[in-house]
Design a protein around this nucleic acid. Structure first.
Length: 665
RNA sequence: UGGCCUAUGGUGUAACUGGUAACACGUUUGUUUUUGGUGCAAAAGAGUAUAGGUUCGAGACCUAUUGGGCCAACCA
């Protein structure tokens, strides 16, 4: 076997190149720099996965650095939550650091820049400054304070630090170029006055550095080799480099910023601000609501760290905008849970079933396999008696042969138990089925088509089950310029069900994950108590039956499927065109016969548009020629378009095309 | 009257210096099965945004277009 080399993503390629160019492997160092102003979500997981993943791959340290330069928005609560989430995902950071650790160093460097004439204090209103800044298509102009003396700047900046000014009076700006094509280079702000309590430095500072001034310098202080962030920071790179130029020591490592496309998930939103609105408006019950795309929400919903890491890995890293289908996330959690989750039986929508030939007082404790995917999972006992619950959905008085659940006169297997036959039903005055009467047979070796899950009524435990649907009805709720994402909120995203579960679940603990057989994966919610069990539905099983069922699921989203049957003759011919000239000779001959047959059903109007097919697509032009040949043979008159098409083909480089054209010209 | 990024099946990511487009999800079919799950097998689906060019040969190279995204917070 040849060695299989996994293809590298563009960031890995950059690193490999740096290594090849002589960077010692020991210099590799990464960081994940969240702002502690909210909870982490699935989008952050990508950034986490990239940096920490690189750290694991190269055995390099990864710092966790809280970017806490804006005391107005940041809180200790978020620091704690972020640490919990990253640790839960299974990553370990080298050092826990804070941008605020560098406030003094940043200040000293700022003073140095002032002395070098590279920074100045501006004393205008923010409106005036915005005015002078220009627009992307219009140059900026220099402001009136741009050429203050170094002494004055030094003095003013010191006064800013000493708290002698209020916010808005003065700011410190880098002196770069008001005519720069990159807006960020038009004398960006380095410091502003903010008389706010900081979660770590308390009231030590009343001036705070801006992101751009802080980030690159922090990377430099920590000697981060590759500073990875999302694409919207691409324009910041130029400034990142400019700030680095001012302070970098030739002997030390100079960090590199590189950008990747961030992750978007269909049917949800990723913006912290919008997520906050869902929380504040009470659309969801907090940041860890199981419907939220936050890490804490997914955790509570029953997702495993492994499944999320697998997801991020599968999604890949590139630079183009993307929307990943939730079905991929769901696949990842199913794949993980299928191997690990113990199987149990629970009935969510019960109907009573009575086994008339089973002794009324008898209870049998039958063996049930915990997980057929895992030999070591063992068995448990489940009680069986004459009165059971099954799902309403699993019984119909009459049904087609495609319905292989229980119907009158039909047989079905009860999972882990016996084969039963439905004999009759008992209905209330409205005609609703109250009881299904069956007989059972102890011969379980027979083959029957269907197998149902069930619980014995007497021993069943009541439990609350929370079923979730997607939060938004639109695939990209926040990408409509004319509509707010709030308009797409799905009002039925939470359904609370009173269910019956098998007694073995009585002592399930918070966080435990199960497969309710035939239904899906569920975990025990944080709200669960000994007296009142609460389960979350993590994700359903793949359900091919649901697709067969006529309408049933009303909010089933319509998916466009490629029509493969009933394709028109011309469509079938066209699909030959895509590969015709690449087919081996014998198959090509077969294809030609087939095309000629199909061509009988094709009209000239369908063929003419194909005359414009580009030269490159010779296959399509060949099949068009063959089809045209049939039409001509059937009496079609040559017109100018046809003559021109044939003439052009006779001139082509492709010999097959020339041959076909020659045959009919 | 801008700068930067980007374009490959329905989705996402591949394709080392040019050799005829791969993998995963999704879809469909068959098969296995005491879960309409899982497993196994297979199929459909892309001439790589467009138009030209170079070349025996282009998704990769060249030219010109077009679509999409980002950039004007004392946010990060």
């Amino acid at each position: 076997m040849s060695e299989e080399r996994k293809s590298l993503n563009f960031i890995e390629q950059i690193i490999e190149e740096d290594l090849a160019n002589g960077m010692p492997k020991g210099n590799l160092r990464f960081r994940f720099p969240p702002e502690p102003n909210g909870y982490l979500h699935i989008g952050h997981t990508k950034a986490i996965g990239i940096s920490f993943g690189l750290g694991e791959y190269y055995n390099a340290p990864v710092n966790l650095r809280f970017d806490d330069t804006n005391p107005a928005k940041e809180e200790q609560e978020f620091v704690d939550a972020i640490k919990e989430d990253i640790a839960w995902l299974g990553y370990t950071w080298d050092k826990e650091l804070f941008s605020s650790d560098y406030f003094q160093q940043l200040y000293d460097w700022a003073v140095y820049l002032i002395k070098e004439g590279k920074a100045y204090v501006d004393s205008q209103s923010s409106e005036a400054m915005a005015e002078q800044k220009g627009t992307p298509t219009q140059f900026g102009v220099d402001g009136p304070y741009r050429n203050r003396s170094i002494e004055e700047n030094l003095n003013l900046f010191e006064c800013m630090k000493a708290g002698e000014f209020d916010g808005g009076e003065h700011i410190l700006r880098a002196k770069i170029d008001m005519q720069h094509t990159n807006m960020l280079m038009r004398d960006p702000i380095m410091y502003r006055v903010l008389k706010k309590h900081h979660h770590r430095t308390a009231n030590d500072w009343c001036i705070y550095p801006m992101y751009d001034w802080t980030h690159g310098e922090s990377d430099y202080i920590e000697q981060i080799s590759h500073s990875l962030c999302s694409l919207e920071f691409k324009p910041h790179r130029e400034l990142y480099d400019w700030f680095l130029d001012q302070v970098v020591d030739a002997g030390k490592l100079r960090p590199k910023q590189r950008e990747f496309a961030r992750l978007n998930l269909s049917y949800t939103i990723m913006s912290k601000r919008k997520l906050l609105k869902l929380v504040e408006d009470g659309i969801v019950n907090g940041w860890d609501d199981p419907r939220m795309p936050t890490i804490s929400g997914l955790r509570r919903r029953g997702y495993t760290p492994n499944s999320i890491r697998k997801f991020v890995e599968t999604v890949g890293v590139a630079k183009r905008d993307n929307i990943i289908d939730v079905s991929l996330l769901e696949f990842c959690i199913r794949e993980d849970l299928n191997k690990t989750a113990p199987r149990v039986m629970a009935v969510l929508d019960p109907v009573k079933l009575v086994i008339t030939n089973y002794p009324e007082d008898k209870v049998e404790w039958l063996d049930a396999e915990n997980n057929q995917e895992d030999e070591s999972a063992g068995y448990r006992k489940v009680p069986f008696s004459s009165e059971l619950y099954i799902e309403k959905e699993d019984f119909k008085e009459e049904a087609s042969a495609k319905f292989f659940r229980l119907k009158l006169g039909g047989e079905v297997r009860l999972k882990n138990a016996y084969i039963i036959k439905a004999e009759s039903v008992l209905k209330d005055v409205n005609g609703n089925i109250e009881e299904i009467h069956c007989t059972y047979s102890e011969d379980t070796s027979r083959r029957v088509k269907g197998t149902l899950h069930w619980v014995s009524i007497e021993q069943a435990v009541k439990a609350e089950v929370r079923e979730y649907d997607r939060l938004f009805s639109d695939e990209t709720p926040d990408s409509h310029q004319d509509k707010s994402f709030m308009e797409f909120i799905n009002p039925n995203s939470l359904k609370t069900i009173e269910a019956f579960v098998e007694p073995s679940l009585k002592d399930a603990k918070i966080g435990d994950r199960f497969q309710f057989q035939r239904l899906g994966y569920f975990n025990v919610d944080d709200d669960s108590t000994l007296e009142h069990l609460v389960f979350n539905k993590t994700v359903g099983l793949r359900d091919t039956w649901a697709k067969v069922k006529p309408k049933q699921n009303t909010n089933q989203n319509q998916q466009k499927q490629p029509q493969q049957n009933n394709r028109s003759a011309i469509e079938q011919i066209k699909s030959y065109g895509k590969k015709y000239d690449r087919l081996p000779e014998d198959k090509q001959a077969d294809a030609k016969v087939d095309i000629q047959e199909l061509a009988q059903k094709v009209s000239y109007d369908e063929v003419e548009p194909l005359f414009n097919t580009s030269v490159k697509k010779s296959g399509t032009r060949i099949i068009t020629m063959i089809t045209l040949g049939v039409l001509l043979k059937n009496g079609l008159e040559k017109n100018d378009a046809i003559t021109e098409f044939i003439a052009k083909a006779l001139d082509d480089k492709n010999v097959l095309l020339v041959a076909e054209a020659a045959a009919i010209s």
